[in-house]
Each structure stands twice: as structure tokens, then as C-alpha cells.
Amino acid sequence: MNGVFQKTSLIAVVALFLLSCDRSTDAFPDEATAIDLLDQPYGANPRQKMDVYLPAGRSQKDTPLLIYIHGGAWIEGSKEEFNEFRSALSTALPEYAFASINYSLFNLNTGANKFPTQENEIKEAITYIQSKSLEWNISDTIILAGASAGGHLALLHAYKHASIGNIKAVVAFFSPTDLAELYDFNFLTVAGLRGLLGGNPSENPTAYAESSPITFVDEQAVPTIFFHGTVDQVVPISQSELLAIALSEAGVPHEFIKVPNQGHGFTPETYSALFQQAAHFLAEFLN
């Protein structure tokens, strides 16, 4: 009798286990806990890693992903830049998951990792993320965001590679948009872009055009919100003004916010306010 009872209990336990495994992740999103997945590889290169931040209560229906791409003139910086903004972004976009991406940096001394290395690695990262949306229990809806060189890469991917990833909008901060126009801004842009793109705009016009987000703006471009300080001495505000003209001419929904008396980088209070503006903009086009 005791053996029968033990056998019956074992069957009941196994049945309960199987039933629990059969429940889809989307069926109980409120049971999901917040998870940080750090240094997730998306390619073979050691720089090809990302940090992923999954919120509690996520679901495939209601949890879009914002991908943040760091700045640093394509020669420095890391995915840890996102940590400066994580709290403010989570407050502005509480229903979002986030990913912050590393990419190979151009080496001014050796000439390694010229463009389009960075562009191609962003494509790899987004393809990897697409393959993980079910496992991470998040939507396939992607917002691209970035600052400076990262904003450039976000804009370039959204406009040039629209078929890779379900990109719905872009959020960009003080980003290069037309590299030929940027080239002569100062000695740093001359040296950096000459190395990155293998010459000046006259010597290699195709590289400059192919690497400039503004080249690929058309009526199909995704909604874009972008911010630029009026006294930026690293990337002139004219880069965002050129983008605003191109988007207007193509009829693309956008907002261009000039940030008075701030340069290449804003105060924490300013970032918090701008993230809230971005959240309102995104809500308009994601609902």
C-alpha cells in the first residue's frame, strides 16, 4: 500500500512539472523577474559583446527593446556608457528592455577596423537580438538610440538597413549625419575621418556617402527624434540641421530639439528631461 502511495505521488509530481513546463512565457509575464545579462557575445570578435537588461513583468506583446550604441568618435568608448543613463531611461521608459552594444573600434595608429566594420557589427548585433526575443520574452519591436558616433551608427542602420530588425524609431544625440560636410570642421575630424574612411571626401566620395545616414533618408525612413547642443564644438549642430532638412523634405515624422548653451554632452538633469520628450515621441508612433 505504501509503495502504491509513493508511486502515485511521484506521478502527480511529474505531471505537475510537465504542466508547468508547458505554460508559455507570454502566459505569465507578471512572474518574470528583472534580469541583467552582461557581456553577451554576438560574434567571434572579443569586442562583439552586449549587456541586456530585461525588466520584470516583460512579455512578447508589451516589452519593446531600446538598443543603445555608445559614442567615442568610433575610436574609443564602451557599452558601459549606458550606465550613466540607465536610471533616467528606465524612469522614462519603464516598460522597455534595454541592450547596450560594444563594437570594434578604429585604431588610428594601425588603421585596423576601418569603416564599414562598425556598421557591419551593428547588423550582426541586431540579428543576434532578433534570434533571442522569444528566449528573453520581449517584443521584436526595436528602437535604436545612441550618442555622437553611436547616434551616427543608430541612424545609419535605421535608414540604410531597414530590413534588418523591426526598427520602429531612432533617438539620437549630437550625431554626425553627413560625413563629407563634417570632414573640414576641425583638425580632429580631418584626421579621424581620413583614417576611418581611407581619404578625404574628394579622394573617396563613395565611402563618405555610404557611411552617412543622410544619404539614405527617404519617405520610408523611421520616425526620428534627435537632440543637439547649440554650442557643440565636437560635432556642429549643423549636422542635425542638415538631417532635419532631409527628413522634412522626405516627409518623415521627426522632432529636432536644440539644447541651448550645451555642448557635446548634457547635464544629468537635461538628459532626464530629454528622455521624457523621447518617451512621448515614441509613444505616439508605437501605439
Rank of each mutant, 00 (worst) to 15 (best):
E95G: 13
E95Y: 13
E95F: 08
E95S: 14
E95N: 09
E95M: 14
E95R: 14
Y96C: 09
Y96F: 11
Y96W: 06
Y96G: 08
Y96M: 07
Y96S: 14
A97G: 10
A97F: 04
A97P: 04
F98G: 00
F98D: 00
A99I: 06
A99P: 11
S100Y: 09
I101G: 00
N102E: 12
N102W: 02
N102L: 07
N102I: 10
Y103C: 07
Y103H: 11
Y103I: 07
Y103A: 02
S104N: 05
L105C: 06
L105W: 08
L105Y: 08
L105K: 13
F106Q: 06
F106K: 05
F106E: 11
N107L: 11
N107A: 11
N107Y: 01
N107G: 10
L108S: 15
L108P: 06
N109S: 06
N109V: 14
T110P: 00
T110V: 05
T110R: 01
G111F: 00
G111I: 02
G111H: 00
A112K: 10
A112T: 08
A112D: 14
N113D: 15
N113V: 15
N113T: 08
N113K: 06
N113F: 12
N113W: 03
K114L: 01
F115I: 06
F115E: 13
P116C: 09
P116W: 10
T117I: 05
T117D: 02
T117V: 12
Q118T: 04
Q118G: 13
E119L: 06
E119S: 13
N120Q: 13
N120I: 12
N120F: 11
I122P: 01
I122R: 03
I122W: 00
E124M: 15
E124A: 14
E124D: 10
A125G: 07
I126F: 01
I126T: 03
I126M: 00
I126W: 10
I126K: 00
I126R: 05
I126H: 05
I126C: 06
T127R: 07
T127P: 05
Y128H: 12
Y128K: 15
Y128S: 13
Y128V: 09
I129T: 13
I129Q: 04
Q130A: 15
Q130L: 07
Q130R: 08
K132S: 08
K132Q: 15
S133M: 09
S133G: 04
S133V: 15
S133T: 15
L134Y: 15
L134N: 14
W136P: 11
W136F: 14
N137L: 09
N137K: 09
N137Y: 06
S139D: 04
D140F: 14
D140K: 10
D140I: 07
D140Y: 12
D140P: 04
T141R: 11
T141A: 13
I142R: 11
I142Q: 12
I142Y: 12
I143T: 15
I143Q: 03
I143N: 01
I143R: 02
L144N: 07
L144M: 14
G146Q: 00
G146P: 02
A147L: 08
A147H: 10
A147Y: 10
A147I: 08
S148C: 06
A149M: 01
A149T: 05
A149G: 06
G150Q: 02
G151F: 08
H152G: 07
H152K: 04
L153E: 02
L153G: 00
A154G: 11
A154Y: 15
A154L: 12
